[in-house]
Design a protein around this nucleic acid. Structure first.
Lengths: 217, 217
DNA sequence: TTATAAAATTAGGTATACCTAATTTTATAA
DNA sequence: TTATAAAATTAGGTATACCTAATTTTATAA
């Protein structure tokens, strides 16, 4: 059984591993968790001893099969609780992440399974991320971003990459949620800003960073 | 904000305070939590510094108004989660206590209020204990025990005092739950054992200790 | 190639919440 | 009243998960 802290490290390492082209380095983990790199070095040693990760100075941190399994179970609980908080307790899109950060650490053998059943086996969480099944399998996450899109094309919002409340509140303000149709009119050559229309409304301009955080399906 | 450990102490002190004739002493708290008395002395100092308890060598530990408030909020969360686990996730009577011990520590301002709304404002938890409202008020707990009962009288099970799985599984085996009718036939003079019939069935004998843990309404 | 900046690590420290063993205080019984 | 048992406390220790400051290693740029 892993501690609260170990679980948070595993989850961060898992997330960083999934980002293409990112080396899961000491400093990358420190940034992700808001901890000092010296603390990360301590924990890398601890998780290596527990055989949950492998560390190679050159390649960075990699989850072992067991570490991967443990990380996925935490992600599973996180995403199931997010569905619960949104659907059953009527929390807003931008509120659920932080509460799920606490709930995901509740350890009781079949709590996740019961919750999944109660929620009627959702495939995706409210941010569009696939929910791992009890066996660890999950649907493919959406990977194409709006920033990669072609102009004069309509896309459907499948998921969001950033789940910070700043981003989610901005989406709320723009009227964008999972399933919203977005037409990409133009990419500004200067800074890759995007001119889009949301559900057929008048065009608005958003940043490249914005577009990179909208995943299309 | 209190730590996980501080919350567990407050809850234990609250529970011990409610038992008539029990002095909330260092050793009583140590027993309740399964900790060493030396550790309890440390925590008594800490909670006193935080003005959550008052300690008098002679009289033992007493919650301050703020300590009482904090303790009741934990009890509120515990009991609401128990209702959720039983009603929504279909856990058994004897399983819910331990899971709620973890869930009660989730700190998010209005999670308890939302959960209470979702559960339709239950007054009592599955063990018959009253659920404190957001303002800390709650229905009077049941206090009369079956062991105090008069013979040839029918009682209704209102609550159980002990919530250990050993006791709850025994009740399950006997077919006793909240609302069950129990007729008290006889008290054995030798050891205060009780001869009872459960929902009109053939009489069975149970111990005095058993009777003291059944609260009647 | 070498200077410099960035990243990683080491050394030593902190607060939390426990512990054991020894000692002191308090309660109980002869 | 005094011996003894029980309870409470003190002293000193541990593991966890962090930290800062200093040092070493690695990467990057002139």
């Amino acid at each position: 059984m892993n501690t609260f802290s170990e679980e948070n490290y595993l989850k961060s390492i898992y997330r960083l591993s999934q980002l293409a082209g990112v080396k899961v380095s000491t400093s990358a983990i420190a940034d992700a968790l808001g901890n000092n790199p010296a603390s990360v070095v301590d924990m890398i040693r601890k998780l290596s001893d527990k055989q949950l990760i492998e560390y190679d100075k050159k390649k960075g941190v990699k989850l072992t099969p067991q570490g991967q399994k443990d990380a996925i179970q935490i992600v599973r609980k996180h995403r199931l609780w997010e569905v619960f908080l949104l659907e059953k307790l009527a929390y807003r899109w931008d509120e659920i992440h932080d509460i799920a950060e606490e709930l995901e650490h509740i350890k009781h053998p079949d709590l996740a399974d019961r919750l999944e059943h109660f929620l009627n086996y959702p495939e995706y969480d409210p941010h569009g991320d696939p929910i791992p099944k009890a066996n660890g399998k999950m649907a493919k996450p959406f990977s194409a971003t709006l920033a990669d899109g072609k102009i004069r094309t309509i896309y459907r919002v499948g998921a969001v990459r950033d789940t910070s409340s700043a981003f989610l509140q901005y989406l709320h303000k723009l009227g964008i949620t999972i399933g919203t149709q977005i037409k990409l009119h133009e990419k500004i050559a200067f800074d890759q800003s995007l001119v889009i229309s949301i559900d057929g409304a008048d065009p608005v301009t958003v940043s490249q960073k914005f577009g990179e955080n909208i995943l299309t399906s």
